[in-house]
């Protein structure tokens, strides 16, 4: 074997990734989503006209990792900030990453009203069913019975209500043009130590479709069902199994609306 082997890059560096090491915990979907976002921006050739809005929570430093012009919004207000950018600069591709506490609790008004007006922006919701950044308190999306630092006996729905399904809330509005929910974590298969990566592939496609919807003038929303093993207090792989067992039935993945038919293209 003296001949020099030549390898051709199939997947490699993305101009939209800064390369800064992330603050995310090992195995976190926030990290996975960052790569997917970068890939979808670059696939569109949109790095120089994209604006990222990061929110408060684990996504607060998203602008450190995505090599884009960026604004960091106050807690829950990212949809308003995005809309404020897009209204004066409709030529820009404006998108944001929010957590479930940010979008579905403190910022529900901003999310619902931006959606209702059909603002041509793209919102990516990381729903890991807990407040991650603040240390594991109950979130609006916490499943019944889940132990958190503020529900030490498990979430009691009689007192704290049922988990809020943001995707279905938005589906009740005419404004949004594209609504999809993706199960982002690696998912257990029939073989005990093997997982599939379907969520990541679906997720990247969903982001591309969200961008396509935005550039056709519509509001797009993708909810990524995710995990938080550190605050759920389980191992990384057990968090993926829990998400598949408990969160996937609670927040069923799928395409909920595609007004422009962008997925059929």
């Amino acid at each position: 074997m003296s001949a020099v082997l030549r390898y051709e890059t199939k997947l490699g560096e993305l101009p939209t990734l800064t390369g800064t090491p992330t603050h995310y915990c090992a195995g976190c979907e926030h990290g996975t989503l960052t790569r997917l976002l970068a890939s979808a921006v670059d696939a569109r050739g949109a790095r120089e006209r994209a604006v990222l809005v990061s929110s408060v929570g684990c996504s607060v430093l998203a602008h450190e990792y995505l090599n884009l012009d960026a604004v960091q919004a106050p807690h829950g207000r990212a949809p308003a900030v995005m809309a404020g950018i897009k209204r004066v600069r409709p030529d820009l591709l404006v998108f944001g990453v929010q957590g479930d506490g940010d979008a579905v609790s403190i910022g529900l008004l901003e999310l619902m009203n931006a959606a209702n007006r059909g603002e041509p922006i793209s919102i990516f919701l990381v729903n890991n069913a807990i407040y991650g950044m603040t240390g594991g308190q109950m979130a609006p999306t916490t499943p019944p019975g889940m132990v958190t630092t503020t529900t030490p006996a498990g979430r009691d729905v009689a007192s704290t209500g049922r988990p809020i399904d943001a995707t279905k809330l938005l589906l009740g509005l005419e404004g949004p043009s594209y609504i999809r929910r993706v199960f982002l974590p690696v998912a257990p298969t029939s073989s005990p130590d093997t997982f599939n990566a379907r969520g990541a592939l679906e997720g990247e496609a969903a982001i591309r479709h969200a961008f396509e919807t935005q550039e056709r003038g519509g509001f797009s929303f993708v909810e990524f069902v995710s995990t938080c093993w550190v605050n759920w207090k389980v191992s990384i792989l057990e968090s993926k199994r829990y998400a598949a067992r408990v969160l996937a039935p609670l927040f069923p993945p799928g395409l909920y609306r595609d007004r422009f038919g962008v997925e059929g293209r």
Binding site: R6, E8, G12, T22, G31, T34
Partner: peptide
């Protein structure tokens, strides 16, 4: 097989390249 699944799921962008033999 250069399927790239590791590349897509890696939360830390530590898989920097997936390449096929020419």
């Amino acid at each position: 097989t250069a399927c790239g699944l590791c590349y897509w799921v890696c939360p830390d962008f530590a898989i920097t390249e997936v390449a096929r033999l020419v």
